[in-house]
Amino acid sequence: MSQTIEFTLNGKATSVDAPAHRLLLDLLRDEIGVTGTKEGCGTGDCGACTVYLNGKPVNSCLVLTGELGDADIVTVEGLKDGDAYHPIQAAFIADGGAQCGYCTPGMLMMAKSFLEENPDPTDDDIRFALSGNLCRCTGYVKIVEAVQDAAAELRRRAGKGQDHE
């Protein structure tokens, strides 16, 4: 028994027919065909499937479709602003934050949310925030550097915005 679920995905009104037990991760990947969100473990232990659900980062592998009525969902595909990279994406490119890249979408979503809460973090703050996102390639060093650089860029932009006011 499928039901029609309506929600917003990356800013667009979306409507899908899916059973209530379908996981958000599978809904995105298999039903909608948006595969940027990755499956690493399926049990909430690796963070590769991190998406924004109603403004907060969550593991999409643990969210049932039944809950999604009127939800606001943002995935890695929604990060870019038109043709421009989000500063987090730009920093991951410049600093070598991605190797195999499989954990990267989840890392980006988590890092974005974290910097919204804490625009001027220490390296340890970043490590704490990203501890639910496993990476097997990088040893996290370049990821932490990238998040720091993105934070600096976001602060610079925020400062500029204030200057204009």
Partner: peptide
Amino acid sequence: TRVDVDEKVTGTAIYGY
């Protein structure tokens, strides 16, 4: 900088999975 990273930060990279 890496040549393969655009698709990895935008979610457009297609892995085997």
